[in-house]
Design a protein around this nucleic acid. Structure first.
Length: 418
RNA sequence: GGUGGGGUGGCCGAGUGGCUAAUGGCAGCAGACUGUAAAUCUGCCGGGCUAUGCCCUACGUAGGUUCGAAUCCUACCCCCACCA
């Protein structure tokens, strides 16, 4: 088996690394950590990148530590932020940290000789005395050094509070803490974390005269330059309650051709040969989206399990496969986004605009009307341009379903109760 | 503490008494073309309505002048630059 660094690198997960990192990581298993910021209570697809780094580490024999920033979250990371963030309430940070920890759990194995561990830096940061911090950590850094960091430099115009300015030292302290107490020799993260991570490397070098390492993954954007991780419905979350497995699958299925290859490497564990097969199939007939289908199934299976991936794939095919496919609406209703209406409400022949708002396809009636005028909505796959359109029992499919659609891809199944 | 500049829609940025729900760009949504792709072209892009029109909310905050204010005045808050 090849070295861990080589693997990461082949998978497109290395943007930058400290000198010597490659040699150390290829030489043998290490213990490494990745920090997750509890500013939100859920993980989204963007977080999957560092998660994959930890997963690959574990697969190659290393010991992963997932750290949730219950302590650093109280300070606020200025990296990548153009302006000072409002401080989160202490209780919110704690609640978010706990929520993240549960979600991270499913990507790592907590058994075996290299069992993963979860830590929360609040456990040591919350009771760190200020005087000790200033003397033991702050003394090792010059303000000049800190001002060189991109996270600070970019804020010299707009301003940065002392609190956020100090952030990098706190994260550096974390790394040092894990280095000395848990033998952690590597910290990974997104490329926006480079400055913070190398501050930690620096601290360890000065306090311990030892070499620790940093490896950061590239920040993802789509090939056409759009933000990664957004779909029509907004952020793509890993939590099925926020983004259903079907929506999650669709997100990956809609990947641009140019991204599919890169993402297969980054977000799946498929061996190179299988990726090559999928790509060859795709090149042969791009319209079938073989690369995207493989990608979507694999990532959905990883995050939500194989059964959910199968269901999502079936639903996707049924909805987009064309009129010739025999559709079981009841099964679709189980996986797709759906809205409910009572039979009495339908018999009253409600205005389509109201139903569209009710189904969440339009945020207001004005928007629904404008959309209808622009022929942006469909009922049972028929484009609808009449603003005054009303729904009736005549629109029902298989007795109790109406398939509503906004644009090309946003379906909501309207289910009639009773 | 002083002096000067500035705070406009998700972001950037025009506007300096009525023609302004506010030019333009970006982002977003939709249509056409396609392959549930990209690129391109077109439309939409605060909300509500009994709707070729009407009403509400909005230009840092609070008041004021005026028939009428994002635009003028006052106070306050915040940001930036220079000086101390």
């Amino acid at each position: 088996m090849s070295g861990f660094f080589e693997q990461l690198s082949r998978r497109g997960l290395v943007q930058d690394a400290t000198p010597g990192a490659a040699e150390r990581l290829n030489a043998g298993p290490v213990t490494a950590y990745v920090g997750f910021d509890p500013t939100a209570s859920a993980l989204h697809v963007g977080n999957l990148v560092p998660v994959m780094c930890l997963a690959w580490l574990q697969r190659s024999g290393g010991t992963p530590i997932a750290l949730v920033g219950g302590g650093t979250g109280l300070v606020g990371d200025p990296s990548g932020k153009r302006a000072e963030r409002p401080m989160l309430a202490v209780e919110d940070v704690a609640a978010n940290a706990e929520a993240l920890a549960t979600q991270l759990g499913r990507f790592l194995s907590f058994e075996g000789s290299n069992a993963a561990r979860m830590v929360n830096n609040a456990d040591w940061l919350a009771r760190l005395p200020l005087m000790e911090f200033l003397r033991e950590t702050g003394k090792h850094f010059t303000v000049n050094y800190m001002l060189q960091k991109e996270s600070v430099k970019s804020r010299m115009e707009t301003g940065i509070s002392f609190t956020e300015f100090s952030y990098m030292l706190v994260q550096a302290y974390d790394y040092w803490h894990l280095f000395t107490t848990a033998g952690v020799e590597l910290q990974m993260g997104g490329s926006d974390q480079w400055g913070n991570i190398t501050a930690g490397v620096e601290l360890i070098a000065r306090k311990e005269q030892k070499q620790a390492h940093a490896v950061v993954a590239p920040l993802l954007v789509t090939a056409s330059g759009h933000k990664f991780g957004k779909s029509e419905a907004g952020n793509v979350w890993l939590d099925p309650a926020r983004t259903s497995p079907y929506q999650f699958y669709q997100f990956w299925l809609n990947a641009e051709d140019q991204d599919a290859e890169r993402w297969l490497r980054i977000f799946t564990f498929l061996p190179e040969e299988q990726i090559a097969v999928a790509l060859a199939e795709h090149a042969n007939d791009p319209g079938r989206r073989a690369a995207q289908r493989t990608l979507a199934w694999e990532v959905t299976a990883l995050v939500h399990g194989e059964d959910e991936a199968d269901r999502a794939a079936r639903t996707s095919l049924a909805v987009f496969g064309g009129a010739d496919i025999e559709t079981d609406y009841a099964e679709l209703a189980g996986t797709m986004p759906n809205a409910r209406l009572s039979r009495e409400e339908l018999q009253a022949e409600p205005a389509l605009v109201d139903v569209l708002v009710h189904a969440g396809l339009a945020s207001s009636k004005s928007e629904a009307r404008r959309g209808l005028q622009g022929r942006g909505f469909s009922v049972n796959d028929q484009q609808e341009g009449d603003v005054a359109r009303r729904l009736s029992v005549a629109d029902l499919r298989q007795e109790r379903f109406v398939l509503l659609r906004k644009g090309k891809k946003n379906y909501v199944m309207l289910v009639i109760d009773g």
